[in-house]
Amino acid sequence: MSLLEWLQGGLLISGALMFLVGSIGLVRFPDTFTRIHALTKADNLGLGLIVLGLIPASFSLSITLKLLLIWLLVMLASALSGHLVAWEARAQQVPLRQPGETENPEGTHE
């Protein structure tokens, strides 16, 4: 394997691991607000790393631009949906929680 392929491999694997970290954060974090963090930060970085890792696979201008466009769109989408969820959660006064507290909003028993 050439140096470039090593670099690519590193970027791809670390991008995928970033997704995994985001998912674990989504499961482990204590309340809705912190879960938004886990999701929108880790996933955007993960996708960015994967996109960077895929660019050397083709070295074609059109594909590179399309990959970057997809990344930009996903970032815009997660920023927007994260903001909307947080905005509505604040309006509905979703409680903040510290790690370790039990979670039991009214009416939902899971």
Partner: peptide
């Protein structure tokens, strides 16, 4: 697990990305 609808929606968002 939920428990809130928003938490489930965040997971759907994760699936999309």
């Amino acid at each position: 697990r939920g428990p809130r609808l928003a938490d489930r929606l965040l997971a759907a968002q994760l699936f999309g990305t």
